[in-house]
Amino acid sequence: MKKPELLVTPTSVAHIHGLAKAGADAVLIGEQRYGLRLAGEFTRKDVREAVDVARGYGIRVYVAMNALFHNDKVDELGDYVRFLADTGVDAIVFGDPAVLMTVRETAPHMKLHWNTETTATNWYACNYWGRKGAKRAVLARELNMDAIIEIKQHAEVEIEVQVHGMACMFQSKRSLIGNYFEYQGKVMEIEKKKYEKGMFLYDKERDNKYPIFEDENGTHIMSPNDICIIDELEDMVDAGIDSFKIDGVLHEQDYITKVTQLYRRAIDLCAEHRERYEAEKGQLLAQIEAIQPKHRPLDTGFFFKETVY
């Protein structure tokens, strides 16, 4: 049976060794100047090294260029795309059509993955971006399992689904953390504080903690729980979903490596020894629960949840 790719986000070049050994088939890297909410910051030098390391293990490297670009960065997109093509990365991840246009002009053979995070919600839109040049669509996290499988049945492009980690709920261009400190009159501390990690918003009514951080792309708010469906992979493996992503953003390196190892085993068993997967999947979930940070409960995201409107 066809196995989905296991795609992971490393925190550093060194981390790629660990992830490759843990069983990752591909890594997603990049820098915040062009990419959104990455687990690590990779300069051009890091990207070159990452490609070398990945080649050594025979795994693929994708680079994120999925920011929403304003005019000021449009002119430099071509240079970055050319660099990525020369370096030999396997695909560029985009959301903004400006990237698609730039790739057509400067590196027409570069593979493109369409990922806007929230707007890949039906199969027609996936195929539309396929006709414009994308080879893969990364589905919105707010879809249920039935919708995902129906999309795969109609898809003319590869379909990537996030199976683990936190999801982005919100992106604003405004400096919302900095603005709050400034409003409180803590002006002196802003520059230092607003880029700190580990901040969260507490929602009393739901007793939820939403990670929040600022970077060059604005303010990002993340889901209160980590998606984990290591024990619910059967339907998507059977449907032939092309890539399972573990998003490691805001997680520790060792945690990401361990989770990768467990999903590697889950995917292999699910695809090749279904009975053993059924017997072992509860145990795999328990191993993730055991290393889960205290403030990050696990849940199954929207896979088994209905939204209304």
Partner: peptide, 8 residues
């Protein structure tokens, strides 16, 4: 289009 707070 880039906000799903309400969904979550």
């Amino acid at each position: 289009g880039r906000c799903v707070l309400s969904n979550h």
